[in-house]
Design a protein around this nucleic acid. Sequence first.
RNA 1: GGUUCUUUAGCUCAGUUGGCUAGAGCGCACGAUUCACAUUCGUGAGGUCACAAGUUCGAGCCUUGUAAGAACCACCA
Length: 906
Amino acid sequence: MKFTKSYEPGEFEPQIYAGWEKTGVFLPREVVANSFETETQDCYSLVMPPPNANGNLHIGHGLTIAVEDSLARYYRLRGKSTWYIPGADHAGFETWVVYERALEKDGHSRFEYSRDELYARVWKFVEEQRGNMELQLRALGASCAWRDLTFTLDENVVSRVYKTFEKMWNDGMIYRGEKLVNFCPKHQTAFADIEVEHVDEEGGLWEIAYKVASVPEDMVDSSSDFLAHELIVSTTRPETIFGDTAVAVNPKDERYQWMIGGLVELPLTGRTIPIIADEHADPEYGTGAVKITPAHDFDDFEVGERHGLERIRVISEDGRMLETAGEEFVGLTTEEARKKVLKELEEQGLLRGEKKITHAVGRCYKCGTRLEPMLKAQWFIDVERLAKGAIEKLEAEKIKFYPANKKKVLIDYLKGLKDWNISRQIPWGIPIPMFHKAPESDALDAPEWIFDTRTNLAKIEVGGVAYYRDEDTFDTWFSSSHWPIVCTNWLPGKENPYYPLNVMETASDILFAWVARMIMMGVYVTGEVPFREVYLHGLVLDAHGKKMSKSKGNVINPMELVTKYGSDAFRLGILRGRSAGMNQAFSENSVVSGRNLCNKLWNISRFIQGMVDESKSGGVVAAEMIEAEAGSEIVNEGAVQAGVELPYSTDNMGEDWICREIIKCKEEIEDDMAAYRFSEAVETLYNTIWDKYADWFIENQKLYKNVPLLKVTLEMILKMLHPFAPFVTEAIWQSLSWTEGQLIVQKWPSRLKFDAVSAENFERLVDVVSEIRRVSNELSVASNGKRWTVLYGDDSLVDDNQLLIASLARVPAVISCEGQPRGMRLALANHEVYLDVPKEVVAEYRERLEERILAVGRELDALNRRMMNSNYVDKAPAELVKETRKGIEEKERVIEGLKAELEVIG
RNA sequence: GGUUCUUUAGCUCAGUUGGCUAGAGCGCACGAUUCACAUUCGUGAGGUCACAAGUUCGAGCCUUGUAAGAACCACCA
């Protein structure tokens, strides 16, 4: 391949990815069971949170893949048998909403079809959509094992879920309960608590008079006029009045104590209902008396349980009033009914007040419809045992969290967890494997229900008795909670080196919905935690730190950025400045900066290839030789075993220095990856490649042309950047004339030999060059861009590197002053170096020089003050004090030099 | 209402166990230009580390309080 002038991602990415996929490098190495007793396979496993099969990837997926694939590629390079398992989610409710919308658009309704028909139709719909999502994952560079892609409705998932359900059923953890559930009247399904979106909104708080009809007998005497009394209740939902079965007051509330046990007349109905005492009534709120509607309010349901109250349903599943609301109201929507109720109460003079309040209302997170608390028979999981198992493992530190504080948050959540409603009234999902006796039965008793996995049949016969299938499906999270178990093919009693997963990476906002449930289920099913570490990423916000939303129009489409700047640029950009659990702004800027790095690396490689081509002596260099003899030991101070012939040598300070810097970079990346500090790893690479390798080393090599070293160092850089920018590094690797095979499966670099003293000396040279540049720049403004010759005195560093300094500092020449210094002395870098400028030009510089003397003086004062503090000298570590002393000496010397300069100027 | 987190340069963020003169990218200003790269090179300006008190020889970092913001959880009728 020829190196073009700039890197064009679009020309390489598709074929590079296809090349990887074809050669099977994404697959884990096969584990040979018990091949050697002592050999333990070094495995690394992680699963992809399955994106919705029906949709496109959004920016959150982009971050997910960038993070996970970096881990997968890094550990693959580190030599581990890496298994990154992709998935696709049937996303029960989500997909259903999309499908139902399409159905309605065609003028159809779900009620025209049987459940089995609907299931088949959605399956087809999803199958058509799924390829799209998978293409996008490839475009992002996900190095996942496509062979093992798991769809959440795959047979092995369903059978595993059924096994768990059966175990729970046998363990008595599943029960059918008639409870209030959050119900969406539009989508006609119930939700788990976790799925409800609470929105603060303005609402009314009405006060309604309930006439007292009787009081307890012993109170009749003292309050003979009780019939004249009324009890004023406060409510936000007047339309549920028809379902009231009591009025509650606080037992400690002195105003109402005497009426407890009495009756009130329920307006608009002619019924009388009891006045009961319950802590639920807050004397401070409203009038202190609250109407109790057990069938339509969560609190009231519990009050009803405590007092054995009747539950009267007055609202139907489609959000309209039932017959129980009376002839005049039946069929009205809740909104209409509310208006009518209020109007009639007003006419009867029973409406006593109306206040505006703000309260949280549960809404459907998909359509925004107000959720109706609905009395329904559903399957519930008694979560006590699940939660207990998970909490024990968490408290025993079996899982490490990034960020660490999430562990506590999770334990707190698990401690307060309520029973889990797993029934959903949508056809798209895993059918609940339960059958009941009577076709229309709403029976609750366990004997009426049997477990059976033949959910493809609506009716089955067992022991000569007919049973009918429960038409509900499982909550998606119930099956998702098995994800690590099913993806790794965990089986009871069978050794599986990929379970638990090494890491679970996902969005921090599904900590409760998913991570918590995976832990509970993992512990319950396998006895072990499902993963050893959890890395949570935050939300990707827009450039101004605002949450992205369609309505705001600030949504960034990751695929557009990939097309425009390349996959690597996107990955580098989105990892930049991001830390665990934090929501973080993201903009095209950071992607541009990633694109620039890719192009920089491309051009570095292009330049090095050019030098390789030029060099006649540059035969084949076996870079692998260093790797081959390296073992696991990491040496960074040049201590290489004697007798090993290296394929390169370092012949000058710059070469020693770059070796040192690359090794430092490598070690930092290793630390960063172990602690999931992706942002820092990328930052370090960016800085090493650009500011060190290109700006100093490559410039240095324009003079020295150490081809073997150029090859070795470039290879190392490509390997180190590969986890984050897989495409450009692979494209370069395969374009270079001397490299073989694919970069993705190379060995992580181990070490370089270099002279540490020499490397340190290069820093001095950098100081000298920087100062020449700085002063020349300042002077050039005053002298029309003229560059001045550099003179030097008795200084071996400069003497040995005249050409290099001249070229790096871009001055006409660096020559010895032959014992006759003239011009301006540069004092900061601590070398005898002069800029050969005429006095009149130097005079322009006087002011700056004076400023600098003052600045250094201030620093010197600070150090002196510290040394004058006897507490500091006594208590601070001796090393630090020594350093301070050294600092003082140095500053004093610098000031002396600067003052001497000033005198020369005169 | 509860929990957790955040507040550092114009913008977006680093700053890992307290240690000297607080860093990066972008943006901005000035300068360069055929020799890998204008997706370039060099130089520079820009900060009371939200505020207050405390611990310490020493605080961006630890403690307490205050203010502002965010996310998640939550039944206030």
